[in-house]
Design a protein around this nucleic acid. Structure first.
Lengths: 104, 104
DNA sequence: GTCGTTGTTGGCAATTGTGCCAAATAGCCA
DNA sequence: TGGCTATTTGGCACAATTGCCAACAACGAC
């Protein structure tokens, strides 16, 4: 068994992913780097909101940023996030199946 | 690109995992079912707190419960959660590496 | 320099999450 | 039936998250 501190570190990373806008951004970044302006178009929120979401992802170590001309480009630091999504999707589908069973 | 509703579903599942106590319980359940009383020993919180955490995991479709005598046993519904942990750990380690770089 | 573009930060109100206590419930077992 | 054990629920105080607006910063273009 692991110590609580380890679970706290992990929880911090997971919490950073636990928001639909941030998930959208991470998913978009799988195909390559994007500037804040493009990410904003994708999630459709205020630029300041998008920027704050990105700072959450950055603080968790999920993305990194760099200046490119007048833009800031964000990129995924760890790509296994994709497998992760597959598993979450499995939970969602499993839950949906459960719903059907209840209706039967 | 996917619709926002899909990301909201996923975020709900991820949010359910975004707490150290709940991570501890999920990790403990990987090796087999456990009753609430044993999970309480593991996380060390009040029984009522543990019960509420479990109801969060259940609502997200991550665990299921069943009565066994006078106890309630919880079990993992989706085991790929394990790979998921590996990826999170990769992020944690990557972030730790980044810290070192900054210090250098 | 001044302007426009691109991002970040501060502040605030509203919402949501957390953890404890106390009270309620569900089943066993005498 | 009545008590006992295991668990859930209600309620409440406190902390954290979210999203918007407004203000600020950085920097290239003119």
């Amino acid at each position: 068994m692991r110590r609580r501190a380890e679970y706290e570190k992990r929880a911090r990373v997971i919490k950073a992913l636990a928001h639909p806008s941030r998930l959208m951004m991470v998913d978009a970044l799988v195909d390559g780097d994007l500037c804040v302006c493009e990410l904003q178009k994708i999630v459709g929120s205020d630029m300041s909101t998008v920027s704050k979401h990105l700072s959450v992802l950055k603080a968790a170590g999920i993305v990194s940023d760099r200046k490119v001309g007048q833009q800031v480009h964000y990129s995924l630091r760890v790509h296994c996030i994709l497998n992760f999504f597959e598993c979450i999707e499995a939970v969602v589908k499993s839950a949906a199946g459960e719903q059907l069973e209840l209706v039967r």
